[in-house]
Design a protein around this nucleic acid. Structure first.
Length: 642
RNA sequence: CGGGCUGUAGCGCAGGUUGGUAGCGCGUCCGCUUUGGGAGCGGAAGGUCGCAGGUUCGAAUCCUGUCAGCCCGACCA
């Protein structure tokens, strides 16, 4: 555990925990999420001297509960937009979250390292990310005009470090991690710690020779993540995700379900869960079309939208069996893809008229290209596209063909269909002339496309691809993201090892992140009520909050004794020893509820009868004889930490 | 980057249209009282009214510019 202590002034040898001051900043060493069995005397925090100021009113700039309450309870203060200062209580919670992460990472076999947050640009130029990140990273110059950045993530550094030291397959597999402050110049920081410009992340990387090795390393990390979030008491959902700009293959996100989450995901009762971008549409069976009537073009004046088209179709060309609906129409949406080389390509996505294109899903499907709705200039360049009446006749294989540089013949306008548009399905769609639509156009008989694409919006009630039933949509806070990077970074930076045949092979990598500060925010988000925070015991700034009320010396002496005995037994105590003239009972109770320590012990008027009150932050209070209170509370704490 | 809103005491806000020596609540400090649900009374400290220019005898207030922050959206391992 040499990695536990920071060097220099943080290296504290002996800590007098009974001191009336908060523990010094050797948080990495004294903090632990372990139960009481260690037998070490625990911290005693005194409200009279603790550096904290609770706010009676909500901070005006805080919207979400975690942000509002963390500021109100004196855990954090805003230093700049998206940048927060940690006060003693907040730092204790943060250290406990870190401790859980650290313990589970170590248990998984990963080894802790620590990179600088301030880095030269060269490694990021080698992978192209100096450019790719654009304005989203903090850049700065040294006195010699050299370019530096505040690292948003450290793939390059890990890769180069391993390259620096290792050169044989015998050295692998290897997993390294760090818990580091990261910087991103977010266009819009929000929701306090949930989306900051400075945040703490645990990032881990695995290094393997083979794909099988990577799969095993990935699974180890995935297991570790499950243990981390379980121990933190944080509900989580694992969803399939797209790997996005990072490249790579398999990717999963750990989401903490919350209405204020920024990620939309779907899940089925049967256990399927996926990020919306990654949802795969179940492909229906092809339908026979032998008895289908021939396609016929009809006049449909003034029907540039699906709604107007459906209304007119029902009025003028009614269906015998039922009404036409938007789902009977084939909507052809023109989009422009911008490829990384700057090339602009027009594509048309054909999908049932009752659905819209989800740009994020589309982009996930066409990555690394970016997508945007086609503009007037695009339509001007393609007069065959009649706005509002676009049909397959001019698209894809049916349309014009151009020859590429390599001599292949491809569609001038690529036509990509939603997977629901299977062979045999019949559609009303544009006839490629103003005011005309074609009816009974059969997919596979009358038209075909260049391929299918997952670009249609996902809706509640859609079926899960694995047959596990209908999907519901939910929001979540992304607290972890793991993926199999593959060889992208190793290739770009030349990380190779010699295999058993003496052949040079490129190492394959996995990348595993936990948003530590974000997980803390998610915990606050999931554990609060109208009165304040209500921490799970493993991460609470203390296990027990002892409150002394009244003015008699006996009350304070008894409370002092109880607090002292508890810390001797390893129970962390926050002791409200403020004199009555400084804080009334009402103030103390309100603060206890706001601060959210899981067990509150009230020493006050009941003392005359030999009783103190033990109040869980959530649950029923009970009167306990003074003589028993230390035992009762210790048992409760042990149960909470078990 | 687009839309909306806001900058006045540590915090939350009023004042601004009608220019005239800056106010309320909470908090802070002193004194007395109170002591199981954010106490009462009395006294006190605390503000370049975001910044810069302008109009005016006089600007928190009117005009111009500018900066910052928050919220929504776009963006976003």
């Amino acid at each position: 555990m040499q990695s536990c202590c920071l060097p220099g002034p943080f290296l504290t040898t002996a800590v007098e925990n009974r001191a009336s001051r908060p523990a010094p900043a050797d948080r990495l060493c004294t903090m632990s999420s372990r139960p009481l069995s260690s037998g070490r005397r625990a911290d005693l925090l005194r409200m009279s001297t603790l550096f904290v100021r609770t706010l009676r009113e909500d901070p005006v700039d805080a919207e979400v509960a975690s942000h509002r309450l963390l500021v109100r309870a004196g855990y954090i203060r805003r230093a700049a937009p998206g940048i927060y200062t940690w006060l003693p209580l907040g730092l204790r919670v943060l250290a406990k979250v870190e401790a859980v992460v650290r313990e589970e990472m170590n248990a998984s076999g990963a080894q802790e390292v620590h990179f600088p947050a301030l880095l030269p640009k060269e490694p990021y130029e080698a992978t192209g990310r100096w450019e790719e990140y654009g304005p989203n990273i903090f850049r700065l110059k040294d006195r010699k005009d050299g370019d530096y950045l505040l690292a948003p993530t450290h793939e390059e550094m890990f890769t180069l470090l391993v390259k620096d030291l290792y050169s044989s397959y015998k050295d692998l597999p290897l997993a390294l991690y760090q818990i580091q402050t990261k910087y991103r110049d977010e266009a819009r920081p929000r929701a306090g710690l949930i989306r900051g410009r400075e945040f703490i992340m645990k990032d881990a990387y695995s290094f393997d020779v083979t794909d099988e090795g990577l799969a095993a390393s990935y699974q180890k990390q995935r297991d570790a993540y499950e243990r981390i979030f379980t121990r933190l008491g944080l509900e989580y959902v694992i969803v399939s995700a797209t790997s996005g700009a990072m490249g790579g293959s398999r990717s999963e996100e750990f989401l903490s379900p919350s209405p204020i989450g920024e990620d939309t995901f779907v899940r089925s009762a049967g256990g399927y869960a996926a990020n919306v971008e990654a949802v795969v549409t179940p492909v229906p069976e092809a339908v026979p079309y032998d008895d289908a009537p021939a396609a016929h073009v009809e006049d449909t004046p003034d029907t540039p939208t699906i709604d107007t088209l459906v209304a007119l179709a029902n009025a003028k060309y009614p269906r015998p069996d039922r009404e036409w609906t938007a789902a009977d129409t084939l909507k052809n949406v023109v989009l422009a893809l911008v490829h990384p080389d700057g090339r602009r390509e027009l594509v048309v996505v054909g999908l049932p008229g009752d659905r819209d294109v989800d740009l994020k899903r589309l982009e996930a499907a066409v990555a690394p290209a970016e997508a945007e709705p086609a503009g007037d200039a695009d339509f001007a360049a393609h007069p065959e596209l009649v706005k509002g009446y676009i049909g397959p006749k001019v698209l894809g294989p049916q349309g014009a063909v151009v020859e590429t540089e390599s001599g292949d013949k491809v569609s001038a306008i690529r036509y990509l269909l939603d997977p629901r548009v299977v062979t045999g399905t019949r559609w009303i769609t544009g006839a490629d002339e103003q005011g005309r639509h074609v009816f009974d156009l059969v997919a596979g008989r009358d038209f075909s496309a260049d391929g299918t694409i997952e670009a249609a919006e996902v809706r509640a009630g859609d079926l899960a691809p694995d047959g596990s039933g209908p999907l519901e949509l939910a929001r979540g806070i992304e607290i972890g993201h793991i993926f199999q990077l593959g060889r992208k970074y190793a290739q770009a930076l030349g990380l190779t090892v010699l295999d058993e045949n003496g052949k040079r092979v490129v190492v394959t990598m996995g990348s595993y992140g936990v948003g530590v500060t974000r997980a803390l925010a998610a915990l606050a988000e999931a554990n609060n009520d109208e009165k304040g925070l209500a921490w799970p015991a493993h991460v609470a700034p203390a296990h027990v909050h002892v409150v002394a009320t009244g003015k008699s010396a006996e009350v304070f002496e008894a409370a002092e004794a109880i607090a002292g005995e508890l810390v001797d037994l390893g129970v962390e105590v926050l002791y409200d020893d403020r004199p009555g003239k400084v804080a009334s009972p009402g103030v103390k109770f309100a603060d206890a509820e706001l601060l959210g320590v899981p067990i509150v012990v009230v020493v006050g008027r009941g003392l005359a009868d030999g009783l103190v009150e033990v109040r869980p932050r959530v649950g029923e209070a009970q009167q306990v004889p003074v003589a028993d209170v230390v035992r009762v509370v210790t048992e409760k704490v042990e149960a909470l930490l078990a």
